[in-house]
Simulated scan of single mutants.
Amino acid sequence: MELAMSRIAPLEPPYEAEIQGQFDRIMRGAPPLMLFRVMASQPRAWEKFRAGGLLDRGPLNLREREIVIDRTCALNACEYEWGVHVTTFAKAAGLNEAEISATVHEGAGAPCWSAAEQALIAAVEALHARSTLCDDEFSQLASHYDDAKIFEIILLCGFYRTVSYLANGLKLPLEESAARFPT
């Protein structure tokens, strides 16, 4: 069986000390993801990616953050990043199987979401579809989230759309241990 490979070759270990330190900070000692290894092969792109500043927690709680990321990745057909996030964060974020599946197949209309989560997902879907929010969508979002959280939601959508473009455009092979889209 032939292993899938990225369209741009990833860095291979051993890594330079500075790169290893960056991987260790992001991955907390786990082996670096293929995405990071490919990005790090291009120093300018890697620097800009890391400078994006959205690899931290931010003002959203983990559940809100992961709902935004998972739905954004699903809308962009990015099984790579969706799977990494579901495997790494879904349990800690309190996402159950129905909610995980809804990030791929149902979206904001799924009955498993609270009113706040429905507004959150509707915003993600609107940003994906039209790159904006209509007044009603913004009002619904603002009825549940403060300004700092709204900024973070919009920034996360854009950042993870870019991550999706990278993973899909570079044809990254799925991480072995990562979740797959539910059928």
Rank of each mutant, 00 (worst) to 15 (best):
R130V: 04
C157H: 02
A108Y: 05
A129Q: 08
Y80K: 09
D136W: 11
F151T: 04
A108D: 07
L141H: 01
M34P: 00
H128R: 04
S164T: 14
R7N: 08
P173S: 05
L155H: 14
V104G: 06
P10Y: 08
A110E: 10
R44I: 10
W82L: 10
Y160T: 13
W113E: 01
F181M: 11
A119D: 04
G94N: 15
E137C: 00
W82P: 03
A4P: 00
G58H: 07
R63G: 03
N76V: 03
R65L: 05
L170P: 00
D56K: 14
N168S: 07
Y145N: 00
A179I: 06
G107F: 00
G107L: 02
P10W: 10
L75S: 10
A17H: 08
A123T: 13
A98F: 03
D136H: 14
A74W: 06
I8Q: 11
Y145M: 01
F23W: 05
T162A: 14
R7E: 09
D70E: 12
C78G: 10
A17G: 02
T162N: 14
P31V: 02
R7H: 11
V163L: 12
L127S: 03
A122E: 06
E66G: 10
E106S: 13
R50V: 05
L75Y: 07
R57W: 14
T183M: 14
M39C: 01
L33K: 03
N76M: 07
N168Y: 05
P43K: 06
T132Y: 12
A148D: 07
A45N: 01
P13M: 00
E175V: 08
S143D: 02
S41G: 15
A110S: 15
K149Y: 09
K149R: 04
F159N: 12
A30R: 15
R25K: 09
I121V: 15
A108F: 02
F23K: 00
E125H: 06
P31W: 00
E117C: 02
A102N: 08
L60S: 08
L95W: 13
E99I: 03
D147Q: 15
I26R: 15
P173Y: 00
G53P: 01
W82C: 10
P13Q: 00
T162G: 11
R71E: 05
P14F: 07
S41T: 11
E81F: 11
E176H: 07
E125M: 03
M27D: 05
R65C: 03
S177V: 08
P10K: 07
A30L: 14
I69R: 06
G169H: 06
L11Y: 13
R37Y: 04
N61M: 14
S6E: 02
E66Y: 09
R50W: 02
L172Y: 00
P32R: 02
A51T: 15
A51I: 15
R28N: 14
G83I: 09
E18F: 12
